[in-house]
Structures are given as C-alpha cells and as structure tokens.
Design a binder for these strands. Structure first.
Lengths: 304, 304
DNA sequence: CTGACCGGTAAATTTTTCTTATCTGTAGAT
DNA sequence: ATCTACAGATAAGAAAAATTTACCGGTCAG
C-alpha cells in the first residue's frame, strides 16, 4: 500500500474514455457511436484532456482528425491503465466469487425444496460455492452468518436494510396418505377432520386453530394432536399414514402429484406474508448473491 | 493501436480516486481531506464502485473502515492504472516540450528587447527550445507558422480565436543623441523640432504627422525626412547623431538610461493599442506557450 | 458547384457530483 | 453507567459537470 501520491495532476478520468475511443477510431463520430454518446460530447471530452495536459492531442486534417505525436505517445498509457482496471475488477470479482455463499434456510424448505435443486444450481454455476445452514429453530434471518436467507416472513422485512424477493405465498392446507383417508371413511369435511389424528408442529400449534376457523368450523381445543418438531417430520408422518398434517408452500407438490399424499379437504387458509429470499441491501448486487437469487427466483416462478 | 475493447465494464472512473485514497488511509475522512472533498462525497464514491462491481470493498469495524479482501485485491490494479496515466501525461508533455516553440516578432522588438532576454529564458527553462522568426514586413500574427507572437496591435485580436497578453502601451516620443542636440542649439520645443533632420520609417511616415498634431503643432508636409526601413535602423541613426527618431515602447530604455540618447522634447503621443503577446486560444494552456508567456510578461512588467 | 460528411461551437438540459444537515453506532472518559 | 467526541452512513438540496440539441463552417466527391 505505497504511500504519498500526487493525484492532482491526473487528467479528467471520465473524459479519458472519449480520448481512447477517438484515438482508436481516428474519428470523433465513430468514437461517439461506440460510447453511445453524441459527437459534441466526445469532442468536449477530448478538449478537456487537451486543456488539462496543455498539449494538443488531435489536429484536423481535411475533414478528419489525426492524432498528434503527443496523442500517439499518450494512447498506450491510457490503454494500459484501462486494462489494468479491467483486470482489477475481474480479480476482485473472482475473489468474491471464490468464497462460498452462505445460505440460511428452515429445515423444511431446505430438505423438501432447496436441497433438491442445489445440485442443478451448482452444475449451472460451477464458479459459485454454497454453504447451506439449515435450522429448525431460528426464524429470524441472521445477516451476520448468512448472505442469503430462504425464509418465511409475515410482513416483508425492513426495506431500508434488506432486499426481499417473494417466492411463494403461504397457504395452509391439510394432507394425508390415500390409505389413511380410506381407513377413516373416505371424503370428509372440515368438521369431520377434527375427529382424526392431526399432526401439529410444536412451535405452530396455533396453525390448526386458524385453519379450522378460516374453514368456518368452531375450534375444539381438545383435538387429538400428534406433536412433532418440524414440518418435514409432519410430512413424513402423513406419508406414513399416521395422521393429517397441515402444510404450506410447495413442499409436498411431488407427493401430491404422484399420489403418495392427498388433500382430504380442499380448503386452503391463505395467510399473510409468504416465503421469499432475503439479503442485506448492500449485498443485493453482489455477483454471487445476485446469481443465486435470480436462479432460485426463476425456478420458484417456473415450478411453483 | 489495438482493436476492440469492452469499456462498458469499467468502473466509474472518477470515483476511483476516492477508493484509492480511502484504501490508502483506511479512513473516509482522511481520504476526503486529501482530495479536498467532504466525507459524504468520498463515502458515496466508494459505494458507487461497490455497486458497480457488486463486491463490498470496505467493512465497518468499530468506528473505522477496513478494506475487505476484495478491496485489497483491487487496490494495486487501480494504483498501477493511475501510475500509468501519470506516466502517460508526463511522456506527452515531455514530448510537447521537446519541440521548439516558434516565436514571431517584429525585427525591432526582437533586436532591441526580446533577443537580449532570450538567453536568460533559455537558461531558466532549459527544457524549452525556441525558434525566433523576425520580420520587418509581416504585421499580422501568422498562427500557421508561429506558436506565439510578440506584436503590436491597435485593437486586441479577436478573443474568440486568440489569447492576448498586453505588455507595453504604444506612446511615440522623439529621441536623438546628446551631441546632436547640442549641435542644433540645445533644448527646443515641438515647433523647433520640425526644422531638424527627422528620421522616419517608410511604412510609418504618418507617425511624425500624428505626433506633431498631438503636440499642438501645425504639421508641415515638407519637413526634411530621412527614410529608413525599420525602427531598429532609426534608433541607430539617432544614436549616431544623424537626426531625431520617433520611437515607441521600451526599445531605447537602455540608451536613455546610459545617456547615449536624450529626448529633445518631452511630449509623448499616446496611441491606441499596444505591444503584447498573442497565441491561438487553444494553445494558451500549452506548457511551452504558457511558460514562455508567463516569463515574458513577468519581465515586461518588471523592467518596462 | 452542390450536397453529404465531419468536426467545432453555443445554449440549454439533464445528470452527476458535492455539500449541508442530521442520524447511528462506537470507544474512551468521567 | 452515562456522557462526549469521533467515524461513517444517509437524505435532500445545491452546485458543477456532462450531455444533447441545434447550428455553423470547412472539405471533398460527384
């Protein structure tokens, strides 16, 4: 980190691009076109540098311009400065890319949605490494230990600090195995469901209550619950024919499609908020973060 | 002059100075001070680059900032880009300096004022070479063949095309040698002067007429003239005691000071315009031109 | 000689940059 | 603990810069 420097005598940096292009084309208009500017803009940029250096860089010859000797002397230095900058940008971005992206998820979202798709992501983006940290207990996105979170939020997080990309809405619906359904007398209504063994999650026992209420059924606090600790386990219980689980999101799409699970009652309780990706606002343009978010959001939109 | 390039992905060049200084100081405020800016300006510049690269370059640690790994990776590239630019500027300026500066003068101004001072200028500015082109006939500054002119103008040249630095005003006064004065009866008035042999310049015979008029003396067109072709010769004639010459500017200061010339009549005819330096407007900031103009103007002010 | 082409210039507008004022969080002192 | 001084971030407005639009003048090819 070398010391002292005399940055004062640097030429107007922005205008250097005009000089570079004008020198390369030996034409103001062509340079302007390349830079998506009008020709007076480039003309002005060149004049700025000529003034700053106190040296003419072009002379008009007929209706064209031609670099002066000084212009030709200066050009390679400018060129190599630009190349150095481009190299630097690439090096910094490569460096950033080399670090694994830390992704925080809830255990259910991880097991039943993200984990399945991660291999494809890694195959499509071999330059990005991932670290998944799944937790069944932490509901809050922890920006100290993760770059991106796939989380559920009732209300979108503070937009002043966080970038939020919604993925799926949050609607609760009951599922059970087809054999379980037959054993308990085929089709039932919401009221009938209350007599069956219901699988609930420790931390979200109130979900059933809300669902019954939204289905227009008076809630009986003495409903026979089977308590498990995560939604992923509740799903396994339902598949195994142990009871009716209350699910949200796209986490049982596959089981519903291939018939391992059915919805004994069609009613869905639409809840506020939804699942989405979250990251610190200042990271939203980070190459790794952007790559990951765009990819996941694309797949969520495509496959629900 | 290598071809193609992808300038699009260059970072915002102007903001790079902020990044450079902030990295070097590891402090936004110190960087701002060095760049003569306020700290929000530098803060913003850094953010601009971080956004452009999609990579954080600093993290806040306590109440200070510290470069991230990416910032440390990027820095040397930026640094070397700046150094390349500074080298380029120097190389171009050195190149420009190597060419001789073409100075156009009238013969009198050259012989009696400029030529004497040129050696000192060359000694003080060994990097600047001069080509003097003196002419007794060309009155118009010829910007095709000269970079700077030391010329007389009745009215300042068009400021849209030329840069003009006035040096001395133009006031006509008569001079002769002391012996000549004594031979012709000592002190005289303007009227008496008309009877003496007057030295006039071919191309400016009307000068005497104007001088007499401004002195309040009726002009007699039959005054005995000795005609010479340049003012420099007229001066020599006067020194040699051949007659009275009509002089302007500082061109006989030395002879008046050491007594080789005297002013037989004190009246001076102040004429419009004056002597000055002229150059094309677009050259006024050229290093060689500026050096020369500043030096000459300084000496003209100091020594009249 | 005419018309298309090229670059320069001026004025106005848009964009960028910078400053002023305020806020948040940290570290050191009381 | 609480207060103060300090370092940065942020927002809004002001200042400065870059850019565009419209136009001019010179040059060259037909």
């Amino acid at each position: 980190m070398a010391g002292k420097i005399d940055l004062r005598r640097l030429p107007p940096l922005k205008a250097l691009r005009g000089f570079e292009a004008a020198t390369r084309h030996q034409s103001i208009r062509d340079a302007a076109e390349e830079l998506c500017l009008t020709h007076p803009a480039v003309s002005h940029q060149v004049q700025l540098i000529e003034e700053a250096l106190g040296v003419p860089l072009f002379v008009q010859q007929g209706r064209h311009i031609v670099s002066t000797e000084e212009g030709r002397v200066l050009y390679p230095y400018v060129r190599s400065a630009f190349e150095s900058l481009l190299e630097g940008v690439e090096a910094a971005q490569r460096n950033a890319l080399d670090k694994p992206l830390r992704v925080q998820t809830y255990i259910t979202a991880s097991i039943r949605w993200l984990a399945k798709r991660v291999p494809q992501f890694l195959a499509e983006h071999p330059e990005v490494k991932l670290t998944l940290s799944t937790s069944g207990t932490d509901w809050e996105f922890d920006d100290k230990h993760a770059d991106v979170g796939l989380v559920y939020c009732e209300t979108p997080p503070d937009p002043a600090k966080f970038h939020w990309v919604p993925l799926f809405d949050y609607a609760l619906f009951p599922v059970c195995s087809p054999s379980f359904q037959q054993e308990h007398g085929g089709a039932v209504d919401a009221r009938g469901l209350m007599d069956l063994p219901l699988v609930a999650i420790y931390t979200e026992q109130q979900n059933w209550e809300g669902w019954f209420r939204s289905a227009g059924v008076a809630y009986d606090p003495h409903v026979p619950y089977i308590l498990v600790d995560t939604c992923a386990v509740a799903i396994e219980m339902a598949v195994a024919g142990q009871g009716v689980a209350l699910i949200n999101g796209p986490f049982v799409d596959k089981e519903l499609a291939d018939g391992r699970l059915v919805t004994p009652v069609e009613h869905r309780e639409v809840c506020p908020g939804g699942w989405g990706l979250v990251c610190r606002k200042d990271l939203k343009d980070n190459v790794r973060v952007r790559t990951f978010i765009d990819w996941v959001a694309g797949h969520a939109a495509a496959m629900g």
